Structures are given as C-alpha cells and as structure tokens.
Simulated scan of single mutants.
Amino acid sequence: MNDRPPLPPFTEATARQKVQAAEDAWNSRDPERVALAYTEGSEWRNRSEFITGRPAIVAFLRRKWAKELDYRLRKELWAFTDDRIAVRFEYEWHDVSSQWWLSYGNENWEFDEHGLMRRRYASINDVPITEAERRFRWER
C-alpha cells in the first residue's frame, strides 16, 4: 500500500496541508484523482446519501460534477486530532438552467495510518445566488 502524506498523527501544519491537498484535488473535478485519497472501503455520508468504496465514490463524483457545473471549492481547517480533521467548506456551481448556487457546510474526516481517508461525513446546505453574488472568480 502506498502512503499518502502527510500522515497521522497530524500537526496544525500537516492538517492544513491535508486540507489544501483535498481542496486542490476536488477543484480538479477528476473523480479518479479524488478517489485515490480514500481507502478502498472508505465510508461516506454526503447529505443524505451513504457511499462505500472507491468505485462508488467515483460514480458519485461523476454524477455530482455532471450536475454541479463550473464547480469551485474552498476548504478551511476547523479542528484536528491525531487521525481526524474537521473542515468547513463552501463552493459555488450552477445547474443546467444557469442558476448559481452556494453550497456550504462541514466535513469530518478520519484517516488510516497511510494517510488515506477511511471516513468522510459531510453536512451540506445549498442557497440559490445570483451571478452578481458569486464570490469565487477563477479562470476557466
């Protein structure tokens, strides 16, 4: 098995690195790349959906990014312990009708000794916004 640094136990600096790596991967919108950060049997709760394993994660992310167009995410470290990290996040996206959304919430992560996430629990809220209310302006 390959390690995915930084590894637990986390310090503030390595927890911040882990959060930034997750933000970068999710902003790639590449389901296969994102899934490599999780254990083979990783358990997720995303809103009301329960997902187990990398193939299910990839399928979920494909569906997600087919719906959530021009997705852009920011994550912020909230707290950490030896093998757990809590983050707050927000992201913007639009649907096929060009309605923009701000989605925000919290995630709780638990890692194995190789630095792979074995559990991810996400609580997410969605708020419709106008184009003028967008906060994230990245080049496409």
Rank of each mutant, 00 (worst) to 15 (best):
F89S: 08
K64M: 08
R63K: 04
E32P: 04
A79R: 11
Y104Q: 12
A122R: 14
E43A: 10
A79F: 06
L36V: 10
T81D: 12
D30A: 01
D3R: 13
W65N: 04
R135A: 10
L77H: 12
P6I: 06
L116H: 14
D112A: 06
F89K: 10
F80V: 04
T130A: 05
E49P: 02
K67P: 00
R63F: 00
E133F: 01
L36P: 00
Q99S: 03
D3K: 13
A22I: 08
A15K: 04
A22M: 14
E131L: 13
M117W: 01
A122Q: 14
E32V: 12
R120Y: 07
A15P: 06
T14M: 05
W138R: 15
R45E: 10
H114D: 07
F111H: 07
Y38P: 07
N2D: 11
E76I: 06
L116W: 07
E131F: 07
L69S: 00
S123P: 00
F50T: 11
R33C: 02
P128D: 01
V87W: 03
I124T: 15
E90A: 14
L61I: 00
Q20R: 15
N27K: 06
W65L: 01
R120V: 03
D3C: 08
D3V: 11
E49Y: 08
A25V: 08
W138K: 10
Y104M: 12
Y91P: 05
D126Y: 01
Y121H: 15
L77I: 05
V127N: 13
A21V: 02
A13K: 13
A22W: 09
R84E: 12
A132C: 02
E49S: 09
E107Q: 13
Y121G: 10
F136M: 13
T39K: 05
R135Q: 14
E90Y: 15
L69V: 00
T14F: 01
M117D: 03
S123Q: 09
A21Y: 04
I124L: 13
F10A: 10
R140S: 11
S28P: 05
K67A: 08
S42V: 08
D112L: 01
I124G: 03
Y121T: 13
E110C: 06
L61K: 02
A79E: 11
G41L: 06
R29N: 03
